[in-house]
Simulated assay, not measured.
Amino acid sequence: MICIKNGRVHDAVHETPYIGNILIEEDKIISIGSDFSVPVDAHIIDAGGMEVYPGFVEAHCHLGLEEYGIGYEGMDINELNDAVTPQMRGIDSINPLDPTFEKAAMAGITCVGTGPGSGNVLGGTFAAIKTVGHCVDDMIVKDGVAMKCAFGENPKNCYKNKSVYTRMTIASKLREALYKTRDYLARKEAAEGDISKTPAYDFKLEALIPVIKGEMPLKAHAHRADDILTAIRIAKEFGVGLTLEHCTEGHLIADKLASENYPLAVGPSLTHATKFELRNKSFTTPGILANAGCQVSIITDSPVIPQEYLPMVAGLAVKAGMKPFDALKAITINPAKHLGIEDRVGSLEPGKDADIVIMNGSAFESLTETVHVLINGQLIK
C-alpha cells in the first residue's frame, strides 16, 4: 500500500486544486482526501509543496511504431503496398523496448493511443497502452480503440499516380469499404451459421465489422476544414462512430464542430508547416474549440513532437489563450474519453488505475521537473 501525502491535487475533475492524500492499494486508487486514516504499513511519499496530477494521456500518437535513432528497419507506421488496409493492427508493430517509451514514462505520460499512420485511406487499428512494460500484450488497456482512416494530402502523396489522386477518390474508397462491409455483415447474419450460405471470408471486411456495428469509431486524420467535414459526412452516412484527429483548421469551423459533438484531437502544433494543409495551424486552436464547447485533446502525434513534451505543448496552448483547466483536461480525462478508457485512466478518482505524476511545479512550465511517476500503482521514478 502507498500513500501520497500532502500534495496539491489536480484531479482533472474539480477545477480548483486542493491539498490532500491519495491512498493506493495494488494498482488502484482507493481513497483521496484528508479524512481517512493512513495504514501504519503504508509506504509514504511526501508530496508536500508539490503538484500531483493524473498520469498524462495522449489520444493520438505513433509511439513504438517509428523507432528512435533508426531508419527503415524501425519504420513500421504505414503499410504502403495498398491504400486500404483495415486488417492491420497497430500492436503488431509496437516495440515496447524502444527508448521513447522510457522517455515518455519518465515525463509522466502514462497511457497513449498509438497505431498506424495516415498514409492510407484505411490504415488499421489503434490500441490504448500503458508506457511501461516489455511485452505489448501486458501493456494494453484496450485494443481496437479505433480504426484509422485518413483524408487530404497524406494519402494523395503516398499513392499519387497510382490509386489515389484526388480527395474524391479518398472518400470513394472509404465509402466502398464501408458499403462492402455492411453488405458482407448482412449476408453473414442472414446465413445464420450455415456455411453453404456464408460469404467467403474477407480479412479486410472482417476488420471493419466493429466499425459498422458501432463498436469501434473511425479515427479520421483530417487537417483542412473541408476534409474534417467530409469525414463527418461519411460517418453520418453510415451511422458509424467518429473521432477527429489533428483538426488544424478546426478553429475556422468551431461552431459547426461544437454542434456535431465529435471528440477532437488537436495538433501537433509545435512544428513547421511542411505542407499546404498546415498553413493555418495555431496554438490558439485548442482554446477556441474548448471555448466553443468541444471535447478537446491536445496531441504530440509523436514522434512528430517527442512524446515527453505533451505537457509542454498543453502549456503553449495556455500561453495562446486556452484556460488552464481545459488544457489539463486536454491531456488527461478528455483523451481518456476520446479512447473510450475513461473508466480506467485520465483523472484521480477512487477505483481508477493508480497512474499518478508528482511535479515540483506546474505541468505547463518547461522548467518544472517530474519528481515521481506511478503507473499501475508501481513507483517507476
Rank of each mutant, 00 (worst) to 15 (best):
I2L: 05
C3T: 11
C3P: 03
N6P: 04
N6L: 04
N6I: 04
R8P: 02
H10T: 12
I22Y: 07
F36G: 04
P39T: 10
I44Y: 02
D46P: 12
Y53R: 09
Y53E: 14
H62G: 02
L63A: 05
Y68S: 10
Y72L: 07
I77V: 13
D82L: 04
D82N: 11
M88Q: 13
I91T: 12
I91K: 14
N95V: 15
N95D: 15
N95F: 15
A104L: 04
A105E: 02
M106E: 13
M106K: 03
C111V: 13
V112A: 05
G115D: 07
G119M: 03
G124R: 12
T125L: 03
K130S: 00
H134I: 15
C135F: 09
M139C: 11
I140H: 07
I140V: 11
F151Q: 15
F151L: 14
G152I: 15
E153S: 14
P155V: 00
N157L: 06
K162P: 00
S163Y: 11
Y165G: 05
M168E: 05
L178D: 08
Y179I: 10
L185K: 14
A186M: 11
A186I: 00
R187H: 08
E192Q: 12
Y201S: 09
D202T: 11
F203E: 06
F203I: 09
E206M: 03
G214F: 02
K219C: 04
A220K: 15
A231I: 07
I234Q: 07
F238T: 06
I253K: 11
L257K: 06
A265K: 12
V266P: 08
V266W: 07
S269N: 15
L270P: 03
T274R: 06
L278Y: 01
S282Y: 02
S282E: 01
A292S: 08
C294L: 10
Q295H: 04
D301M: 03
P303E: 09
V304H: 01
P306K: 01
A317I: 13
A330G: 06
I331R: 02
T332H: 13
T332E: 10
A336P: 08
K337S: 08
L339E: 05
V345R: 12
E349W: 06
E349F: 06
K352Y: 04
K352M: 06
D355P: 03
S362D: 02
F364Y: 02
F364A: 08
H372L: 06
L379Y: 10
